[in-house]
Amino acid sequence: MFAKEDCLLVVIDMQEKLCKVMKNLDRTVKNIRLLIEAAHEFNMPVIYTEQYPKGLGETIEPLKSLLVDYSAERFDKMSFSALKIDEINNRIKQTGKKTIILTGIESHICVLSTAVDLKAEGYNVVVAKDATTSREDEFYQTAMDFYNSEGIAVVPAETLVFYWLEFAGTDSFKKLQKIILGKAHRISVV
């Protein structure tokens, strides 16, 4: 289910105004960064969305620079589910990937709506538990409970990365281990 050659990473709405009010933002950003780095290491496609960027701002740093540097594809949306936007839906289909790894915000709104629609389309949906968050812990936990009840996989970002790595001691392992063991990148969202 997690085979790296069959995965697409999706980063949902990690935008300036939204991030200001999120719980566990440092943890979420650190783990999204880890997944972006791993996706790049394994030539996995990455797309990211921005919900009404005119009003909610752009994707926060350091994620934006990393996504741009690694040629991730950016999509605007107004819908809560990314799949409601034909351009995004078509791009996901064009990748030919069957497993979609979801990260971003909010766990109980845009991530959840996207997960439900992806599952309905027949994709294997994986939510990186520590690479998503919400404004309230209760909302986050309710979303995690929902995913589990609907057969949507919920796993830590590290689980995915180590599964993709397969072996310790490789160059990829050494590169990604530095991110895993490093201090969380502090984010200043004012």
Rank of each mutant, 00 (worst) to 15 (best):
G55R: 02
R135E: 07
E73N: 07
S107V: 01
L34P: 09
V155L: 11
T132Q: 02
R74M: 12
E121H: 10
K54V: 05
E50M: 14
Y52T: 10
K174M: 09
E121N: 12
N148I: 08
N31H: 07
D86G: 03
N43C: 09
F42Q: 07
Y123D: 06
V111H: 00
K178R: 13
L165W: 02
I180P: 08
L83W: 10
R91E: 10
W164G: 03
S149K: 11
S81I: 02
A131H: 03
T170A: 01
R135N: 09
A153Y: 10
E136R: 15
A72Y: 07
D117C: 07
V189Q: 04
S79I: 00
V161A: 07
I85H: 12
V111G: 01
G122E: 00
V127K: 00
S79E: 11
L8I: 02
S65W: 02
T99S: 10
G182R: 09
K84F: 00
E5K: 10
R33M: 14
M78L: 13
K119G: 00
F162Y: 13
V116I: 15
D86Q: 14
K20S: 11
L63W: 05
K175M: 10
M78Y: 10
Y163I: 03
L18H: 02
S134D: 06
I179V: 15
R186P: 00
L83M: 15
P53S: 05
V125W: 03
K174D: 07
I47H: 06
T132M: 08
K174C: 00
D137C: 01
Q177K: 15
V189K: 07
G169H: 05
V116T: 09
F167N: 12
S71G: 09
D117Q: 13
V125H: 03
V190C: 06
L66H: 04
K98P: 04
D13N: 09
K93E: 13
P62L: 06
K84R: 13
E61C: 04
R135F: 08
V126P: 00
Q15H: 05
P156N: 11
D130R: 04
C19A: 13
T159S: 13
E73L: 11
A153P: 00
A131V: 00
I85N: 14
F75V: 03
P45K: 05
L8D: 05
F2M: 14
A115E: 02
V46G: 06
L34W: 07
S79L: 04
S172I: 06
N24H: 14
T95F: 04
E61D: 11
T103A: 02
P45I: 05
E73D: 02
Q94R: 11
K4H: 06
S188L: 12
P53I: 05
K20W: 04
S79P: 01
I36S: 04
D171P: 09
I179Y: 11
L181A: 15
A143I: 02
D117W: 07
K64T: 01
S71Q: 14
G151I: 01
I105A: 11
V126W: 01
I12M: 09
E73A: 08
A82F: 03
L165N: 01
D171K: 14
L56M: 13
E136P: 00
L34I: 04
D69P: 05
E106D: 09
